[in-house]
């Protein structure tokens, strides 16, 4: 039985989330009793392939094709579907990144497969593995069965530690037939430039909410002192104070850093859905009744404009 995990690269660099997906693939291979195959698609992706091959998969299929330079659902879907079919893959998965979320449901439809989103773990064995996944903003954990012969899923990266280095995979350069007639065209990408660590990869995250009243300076300065990423609640993002990309929650990024500091965030269930897997949670809020304190390991009922600079100074002094 073959398991196919689709890895992801951006501008030729392997995405870290792919290593979490590889780890999910290895765990599934153990439960289901199959062999792990990886796929990497793009144009000029030799270096990323070289990196990806060293994580214990059996085969790494590399589709290096100029037509796959910028990610678009239609050609990627065609290419992956061909690979999955030629391998008779029973399980096809990826990380729940923006690309994973866009591509996999379309791929599932092409393969006539059912799909589970944001998978947290696998239960059972063989071809009858059940998928654990969150519903209702993580208020409920469901076990779902995919009844089709092919099963598609994407995984929540915070639930699977990045795969450790392992035996080298056999690398196969694959040719795919691309129809070339697509309804979508890639026009441009506007990156959010930041010198800070990426939100989903950072060891520490400092997030601000409506309580910052639009002044993210104390949040950012504390983040920099801790070499942390900056996150935000939906309220802060909707107000245009920080880029969309920083939203933590049910419908934003899901993070599980070692330390999550929530400042001026009330702790709505949709926000908690994106951070309650963090190892240690600190909440700073002027309202002692704020729900964020119900999940915080350490709470400070105080004004963030007073407390964050103090905390920053203390961290600096302790270095």
């Amino acid at each position: 039985m073959n398991i196919l995990i689709i890895a992801e690269q951006q501008h030729g660099a392997l995405k870290k989330a792919s290593l979490n997906a590889v780890s999910a693939g290895l765990s599934l291979a153990q439960k289901a009793g199959g062999e792990l195959h990886l796929a990497l698609l793009g144009s000029g992706i030799g270096a990323a392939a070289e990196e990806l091959k060293g994580y214990g998969a059996k085969v790494l299929h590399v589709v290096d094709n100029p037509a796959l330079k910028d990610y678009l659902a239609e050609p990627y879907c065609e290419a992956v579907a061909q690979l999955a079919k030629s391998l008779n893959a029973v399980y096809v998965g990826a990380a729940s990144t923006a690309v994973g979320k866009d591509l996999l449901p379309r791929l599932a439809a092409k393969l006539g497969a059912g799909m589970a989103t944001d998978v947290l773990g696998f239960e059972g064995s063989g071809a009858n593995v059940l998928f654990k996944r969150p519903m209702w903003a993580g208020n409920v954990i469901a076990e779902v069965e995919i009844t089709t012969p092919v099963k598609v899923f994407n995984i929540r990266t915070t639930e699977f530690a990045a795969a450790p280095k392992g035996a080298a995979a056999e690398v196969k350069a694959e040719q795919v037939q691309l129809s070339g007639s697509y309804k979508t065209k890639y026009l441009e990408f506007k990156p959010v430039k930041s010198a800070r660590p990426e939100l989903t990869e950072a060891r520490v995250v400092v997030s601000g909410g409506r309580g910052t009243k639009g002044n993210f300076k104390p949040v950012e300065e504390l983040a920099d002192e801790l070499h942390a990423a900056v996150g935000a609640s939906r309220a802060a993002v909707d107000a245009g104070w920080v880029p969309n990309d920083l939203q933590v929650g049910q419908t934003g990024k899901v993070v599980a850093p070692e330390l999550y500091i929530a400042a001026g965030i009330s702790g709505a269930i949709q926000h908690l859905a994106g951070m309650k897997g963090s190892k240690v949670i600190v909440a700073v809020n002027t309202n002692a009744e704020a729900p964020i304190f119900q999940v915080a390991d350490y709470g400070l009922v105080a004004d963030l404009f007073k407390v964050l600079p103090e905390l920053q100074a203390a961290v600096k002094a302790g270095k």
Binding site: G114, N139, V140, G299, A314
Partner: peptide, 25 residues
């Protein structure tokens, strides 16, 4: 194609403590 077999509540988090000041934190 996708059947929900069982639902359960998510694992809870242990309630933490309120600290009086930054130094304690």
């Amino acid at each position: 194609k996708v059947k929900v077999v069982k639902l359960s509540p998510p694992p809870g988090r242990k309630a933490g403590i309120i600290v009086p000041d930054v130094a304690t934190l």
